[in-house]
Design a protein around this nucleic acid. Sequence first.
DNA 1: CTATTTACTTTAGGTACTAAAATAAATATC
DNA 2: GATATTTATTTTAGTACCTAAAGTAAATAG
Lengths: 407, 407
Amino acid sequence: MALPSTETSRLDNTLAVIRTLRDHGPVARTDLSKLNGISSATVTSISAELLQQDLITQQPPETPRPYGRGRPKTLIQLNPQAAYVVCIKLSINEIQLVVGDFAGQVRHREYYAASTLALSADDLEALLEDKISAVCAQQLKGFQRLAGICLAVQGVVSSQSGTIIWSPALSFRNAPMSARLAERFHCSVLLENDANCIANVLAARSAYADCANLVVIMLGYGIGMSVLINGVPYLGANGSAAEFGHSKYQPDGARCACGRRGCIEAYASDYALYRAAAEQLALPSGDSAHPSEQQMQALTQLALKGDPTAQRIYDEAGRALGVGIANVLALFNPDLVLITGSGVRGFGAMQAAMHSAIDDALVAELRGTTRIESCAWDRDMTCMGGIAMALNATDAETLQATAQRVQ
Amino acid sequence: MALPSTETSRLDNTLAVIRTLRDHGPVARTDLSKLNGISSATVTSISAELLQQDLITQQPPETPRPYGRGRPKTLIQLNPQAAYVVCIKLSINEIQLVVGDFAGQVRHREYYAASTLALSADDLEALLEDKISAVCAQQLKGFQRLAGICLAVQGVVSSQSGTIIWSPALSFRNAPMSARLAERFHCSVLLENDANCIANVLAARSAYADCANLVVIMLGYGIGMSVLINGVPYLGANGSAAEFGHSKYQPDGARCACGRRGCIEAYASDYALYRAAAEQLALPSGDSAHPSEQQMQALTQLALKGDPTAQRIYDEAGRALGVGIANVLALFNPDLVLITGSGVRGFGAMQAAMHSAIDDALVAELRGTTRIESCAWDRDMTCMGGIAMALNATDAETLQATAQRVQ
DNA sequence: CTATTTACTTTAGGTACTAAAATAAATATC
DNA sequence: GATATTTATTTTAGTACCTAAAGTAAATAG
């Protein structure tokens, strides 16, 4: 039984090593060999190259003193300063900017309030250029290069062409974004749907490591979704993310922000919940089309404390969500559906109705074994995912770039 | 700008050559080189091996006489007798058996009437063993070996474990099938959903060659679906095919064969159409829960000729189908949705309502650029797909098997 | 202080690719 | 009809990369 031939190339193996180091922190060569199924001779060769390119550093084998016999392991780790990436999250009235280093750690973050809906495509681009330039100048003295930028945008984007097709945070449409930023900063620019970024972070968590097919639903002002198939975000024909929020609950139901009727979003998003509540309850005033976190929390509290009207509103939202998820189960049959986003605050009040809607909709054979779970929300999650994706996308480039410099 | 390293292995290249030959028929070495992006030296080496293993034959360079200057091409082609595969399609009350050769051509087909619902898992297995043995004995004297079997089953199957989870054609559930057949015939056994087989055939057609993401909807007694992502059938967590037929149109709508309410299938499948019609119209008698092709054609004719009741029934079916497809567009955003199956006979009567339901459901940005087309139905299509899939699955094995014999 | 253990590196050998040179087999030209 | 040209295929030479096995390094156990 001979070996099934080579199957791998140097680039693949090198990327595998880099990714292992990024996931695990300092690792010894032997362990890299075992973790990636390549011979230790190859690891020696690869790490020698990376060392020469200053992409990794050796740890002086001092600290982890006694752990048995034999020559102690020499740990190698990524050089954080070998490169850095920037992730910018664009949401309604807020721009978030996070810098990550080559090792995948967050180095810096900042938040800006901005009237995003008032910006033209050119305005936005100028703004992004300013912010990125500023952050590069201030924060990144010791670093070797800006390797990549990830733009995480709510709505429909075309990753391939780098075009923002439609976003609830922006009033313009079909605007190319990646190309000009790439030219300005001489690095690759990733344009991603925000839900894809989050799905990426979550999929990397050990608790969900066994889920090859993962659906992440983001509840919030709108409702987004991302599907990971074999761990890779699924982008449809247009490169746009899955639009779960606009799949249907009731063909002629409630009015949705998209202009149509009966979308899941028209029942279970923040604006839909608040709209339904505003008609029936006395609530803190404010912009009811864009309810604030405080307003939403007040409403959630009402429902959780047993107010029957609020409870009824969340039940209906849960049913809509349940029917939507039933369709996702019938069509995708994923290993896991994770529900997150700022809207998870109200998930407790929707959960029961959601589960009973799913059970009503699907018999056991079709319901399958999909787990449905919620997951605490962290406002930085999107950017962490964006940084991970940007690094993954630029590793090969970084390799090339530093190889040139060395040689 | 050095080469980006090898990236390929002998096995990959050899499989690529075999597949090119299967798709194109006789091809010259130069063209194999161009079509697969490998050097002609490598093609020479690979074809020498295949020739030695008797997997390909050289065409005496006679027939295509004058086509310009230069040394004439020596065409090589697959040896059809190098191996053969059997595909068995299991549907309600019918078993279809088709034999394909190594070149992908159908060599033999036969149909049996069988009361599939009356069979136990053991009965079915015995029956399949008999039929396969018989066909091997009769049809396949000159052939080298049975390389693979594909079982194409309506319903939910787990390809990975080779288990039939649930099929409308069978009264038993959760029965392993692949393993025992594999043991009996010493070849790999593929268990596939019938819609996946069809999607595979359709995706191979040149008209749809540019569709990386393809959704095929099969209308018939039930409603099935298959999703190809980057040309590969998507199997969910359980390996079960996408169950479009049981995604929802109306949460508390019509009763479906699955036991729940409001499924698309409960409106647009043969049994649903006939059920609705039987309540309101005088129709040829017979088993109205399993309407025959004649019964369905009579009903379709009524609708197409303008009978208002029949028309209303098909309109409602079209709306259900449209809402279902709108959800598919929102969630998958494929390049193309193809509608086929015996039920396409009635597609003309549903089409208008379907399109207007889709337009009502989704705004242009979400509707995307997905083409929606129907496709004439051919009862042998499933098995042709099964044969293609079985061959693809067993090429590597065949290579190994004949290599052993040669050596 | 030596044997043992474990980590890492070097060496030797193999697979499989490509570019370029050589060969083969036709047609075009004069 | 001999030679040049063109195109297809094969052979040759060289490269990249991998692995197994042998060699070296650096610790602990006794």
